[in-house]
Nucleic acid binder design. Structure first.
Lengths: 109, 109
DNA sequence: TTACTATATGACCATATACTCATATAATAA
DNA sequence: TTATTATATGAGTATATGGTCATATAGTAA
């Protein structure tokens, strides 16, 4: 059985993984690779409502993935932990493998 | 605005990220680091119902994170893409940063 | 054949998540 | 002061997810 310590760790890790696990949030992270951006630019880039984008951003801030600074009316967000980007290279690997598996399956028909 | 191509990629990536983003599934991945295991052993290790564990496993299989082989009555699961484990070192980094931020906050009081 | 074991899955319910609309907050400018 | 702009958030709704129980499937053994 899992120790309490491990259980707690896995919960925290899942919290952070959940904060990434949404197409719009991934799009936001991808957009912020280039540097800090305001909510308005992010919303325009990913093509979603301001209120929705604002909510997705706040989820990632709470998880510790993004940080921000205020400048006049605007709030500029940026990636806090760029290693998150490495995650996507792994995920891309999984996707490539899935494509390969599908090819094998097709070839076997 | 996002291209269709990017939108599709982000959806696929989110699908895989979601498949990891649950404490029990993270526990399963952690347990499988040591090698292939049957559902019964996994369920015993993480302390959850067999049916529940079976469902979580099938989510990860569908996402391409786990693969399996059958041996008699048992089905032995293993990690298909060990790079997933790298993800957790990044996540741990995020957690450590959060602790540091909290310390700063406390020190400022 | 029947009995037993390991795993998967349908049906159900409770909770969480995502989204939209309207509104609140806050900085700026006239 | 009022108006404008950028962002955040409450309320409501629709959908997704997680969990349990009971049952189905399938391999093994007697």
């Amino acid at each position: 059985m899992l120790s309490k310590k491990k259980r707690l760790l896995f919960e925290k890790q899942a919290e952070i993984a959940k904060a990434i696990a949404h197409p719009l949030r991934i799009a936001i992270v991808d957009f912020l690779k280039a540097g800090e951006r305001c909510v308005c630019d992010i919303a325009a880039n990913i093509g979603s409502e301001q209120s929705n984008v604002s909510r997705h951003i706040s989820i990632m801030v709470k998880a510790g993935l993004l940080e921000y600074r205020k400048e006049g009316l605007k709030v500029l967000y940026r990636l806090k932990t760029p290693c998150v980007l490495d995650f996507f290279s792994c995920v891309s690997g999984v996707l490539k493998q899935r494509v390969k598996d599908n090819e094998k399956l097709l070839a076997a028909l």
